[in-house]
Nucleic acid binder design. Structure first.
Length: 632
RNA sequence: GGCGGCGUGGCCGAGUGGUUCAGGCAGAGGUCUGCAAAACCUCUUACUCCGGUUCAAUUCCGGACGCCGCCUCCA
């Protein structure tokens, strides 16, 4: 990375040296006797009266005391936290290193062949995030982890200022569960961030409305495949909307693109990459030398360890179906079928995404996204199909999110440990689920529990209460995030976090840093500062897709939920508050406290503010809702 | 067997070759308040283990142990 002259992070040379010397001195004093023998260690502990300390504790712990000043002392010396601090990672030179975590594995930006960040390469036509001051010294552009390379790479769209994104959506044979929610939310953050970054985004998320499972389920329920699809699509739409996901530009359904799929299969036949056996058509993986490049497997390894049933009619065990024949009898029994050059049948699963993504976004397009279980075989096969047919790359980058687990086990329908989004949303706002999902990086596995979502809910309440406070003081800000995001120094850490492979966990931390800052300004009565902070909080929250509802509306809804749970009417609470107000003005504290205690017993907490008394549920979401239990 | 990932404080979860510091939740003390609540301030200093590299390792390298995912429909 090349920095404009004069923009290198400045460090006073002499100052730095002094600090280094001090640090070394601290370090020496705090030196841990790492290689001391057991006897020496015991003697050391005995000398400090620490003989009875925990077994198996690393000796180093006990020597920390001699180390750098404890936090209390340090803070006294430097009481002001610096919100504008530049994340360490963004500093020049610090991009090196860190290969232990794959998330940190990145292209070295600070030397070697010059890799211009995409925006710099594009020049000024694309809105920058801010002036030189805002982003100086940082990795200027968005970087994303690409499964193809296995690395974090600077993102550069094929066409300046425009991005095409395709997300493998859902098969609508059942309601969506929390695992699906993670996909929706993870790539909705991508969608929002690309927009905030000033890109014109074409976001496509498909719906698979025909496949084996749908046929099975429809038969089991005694409904048509189409009816099953309609019902679950409606549910799906409710769920994604509740999760605060932006609407995609296109939402293609497999059944509406059969022609394109047939056309693609014909082209594969022409290239001898597909062969028909009876009414079925298979893809010949041996004909595609790059097969395995995404999942990084060799054909030989796969076959050696394969648990696949060998179909006699396949030329190679790894060949997969492009088109499946449907018999007249099955069709009569309700199995969907379309005419094709190979007879009546339906498309295989992988072909639909190849056909729809390239039809809507072109080939190649920018980003292809989905859950990590789609790496193989789904996305591998899509590559084989699209690249085999067109002889050019399929997609530039592949993004995959990690799983949601329950008790450290994958949440999946085959394991029967699935929580439907709707089950959660009936007990807590779906927005709390969203905050929960983005509080972990999208490529780390996360453990799901209702308690954890309830915890996120309390954090969400903190956000909304702060916004409500600000609004009440006339520091109201815009609800939606403007795109591109305005250049505000305070948002710089947020930009850095999201630019770093969508590090939402860090971004959430920045959001709550700002929340605290805003509360501080409100406490101090600094309306001007509060108004500015309110805007930043809104912008940060909106980029993450939380805090976008009107704060009072959100809090009212939760109050109503609490009242319903307690079996109280709003009028009763209001009457109590009025009676207590009278008692208070008469300085009848005994009566006032009595009334407060009465409401507290019902789970209602009163808050006496400057503008009168308000109430809130005693513990926003503190009681974890009853477990809905795994769905069968 | 092949490929990939993970192990951080009471819990969740970022991050890092030395620096003042993630953040949330929970708990404790304080400020404020008639009493509270909320908010703010402070505290509860952690990186699985064993080696190596280094002046310095939770961070880099090697190994061990434990856990998870994909290779079969799966987000």
């Amino acid at each position: 990375m090349v920095l404009p002259a004069g923009l290198e992070p400045q460090q006073g040379g002499r100052d730095r040296d002094r600090r280094r010397r001090l640090r070394r001195a601290h370090r020496r004093r705090a030196r841990r006797p790492r290689h001391q023998g057991e006897a020496a260690l015991r003697a050391h502990r005995a000398g400090r009266g620490e003989e009875g300390l925990r077994e198996g504790t690393h000796p180093g712990r006990h020597h920390r005391r001699a180390g750098p000043p404890r936090r209390a002392e340090r803070v006294r010396r430097a009481p002001h936290r610096d919100l504008l601090r530049r994340p360490r990672q963004g500093r020049r030179g610090d991009l090196r290193g860190g290969a232990r975590h794959p998330r940190r594995r990145r292209l070295r930006l600070d030397h070697g062949p010059q890799l211009l960040p995409a925006e710099e390469a594009r020049g000024a036509e694309v809105p920058r995030h801010g002036d030189e001051d805002l982003l100086r010294g940082d990795a200027v552009a968005l970087s994303l982890h690409n499964t193809l390379s296995g690395r974090i790479e600077p993102f550069e769209p094929l066409e300046p200022g425009k991005v095409g994104v395709y997300v493998c959506g859902v098969t609508v044979y059942d309601r969506c569960h929390v695992g699906h929610a993670r996909v929706f939310v993870a790539f909705d953050v991508l969608h929002r961030w690309l927009r905030a970054r000033g890109y014109q985004v074409t976001f496509v998320r498909n719906i698979t409305d025909v496949d084996d499972r749908m046929i099975e389920r429809a038969r089991a329920e005694g409904v048509s495949v189409a009816a099953l699809a309609e019902r679950n699509i409606a549910e799906f739409r409710r769920d994604v909307a509740a999760l605060g996901c932006l609407a995609p530009a296109r939402e293609p359904r497999a059944t509406e693109w059969i022609e394109a799929m047939i056309e693609l299969i014909r082209r594969l036949e022409d290239k001898r990459l597909a062969y028909a056996v009876g009414g079925d058509v298979y893809y010949a993986v041996r004909g595609f030398p790059d097969y395995g490049k995404l999942s990084k497997r060799r054909l030989e390894d796969m076959i050696a360890g394969a648990r696949v049933e060998v179909d006699e009619r396949k030329r190679d065990p790894m060949d997969f179906a492009l088109w499946k024949s449907v018999s007249a009898a099955s069709e009569a029994a309700g199995e969907p079928a379309w005419p094709s050059p190979w007879g009546r049948g339906r498309p295989g699963w992988h072909i639909e995404c190849s056909a729809m993504s390239t039809a809507l976004l072109g080939q190649p397009f920018d980003l292809h996204c989905g859950g990590e279980d789609l790496i193989f075989p789904h996305h591998e096969n899509e590559i084989a199909q699209s690249e085999g047919a067109a002889g050019k790359p399929f997609a530039r980058g592949f993004l995959h999110n990690s799983f949601v687990r329950i008790n450290e086990e994958k949440m999946s329908k085959s394991l029967g440990n699935v929580f439907a989004i709707r089950d959660i949303a009936e007990r807590l706002p779906a927005e709390a689920l969203r905050l929960f999902l983005i509080s972990t990086h999208y490529r780390s596995p996360m453990d799901f529990s209702l308690e954890a979502v309830a915890e996120s809910f309390r954090a969400l309440v903190r956000l909304y209460e702060t916004l409500a406070r600000a609004d009440a003081r006339g520091a109201r800000g815009p609800q939606a995030a403007p795109a591109p995001l305005p250049p505000t120094p305070r948002l710089e850490p947020l930009v850095a976090a999201l630019d770093d492979d969508l590090n939402t966990a860090r971004a959430v931390a920045v959001l709550f840093d700002l929340v605290r800052e805003l509360n501080r300004a409100l406490d101090a009565g600094d309306v001007a500062a509060a108004a500015a902070l309110r805007r930043d909080v809104s912008a940060a929250a909106a980029v993450l897709g939380v805090g976008e509802r009107r704060s009072e509306e959100f809090l009212d809804a939760e109050r109503r939920r609490a009242l319903a749970a307690a079996g109280l009417a709003a009028g009763e609470v209001a009457r109590c508050i009025a009676e207590r107000a009278a008692a208070r003005s008469a300085k009848d504290w005994k009566r006032a406290d009595e009334l407060r205690r009465g409401l507290a017993a019902a789970g209602i907490v009163l808050e006496d503010g400057a503008a009168g008394t308000t109430w809130r549920p005693a513990s926003w979401g503190a009681e974890a809702p009853a477990r809905p239990g795994p769905r069968a």
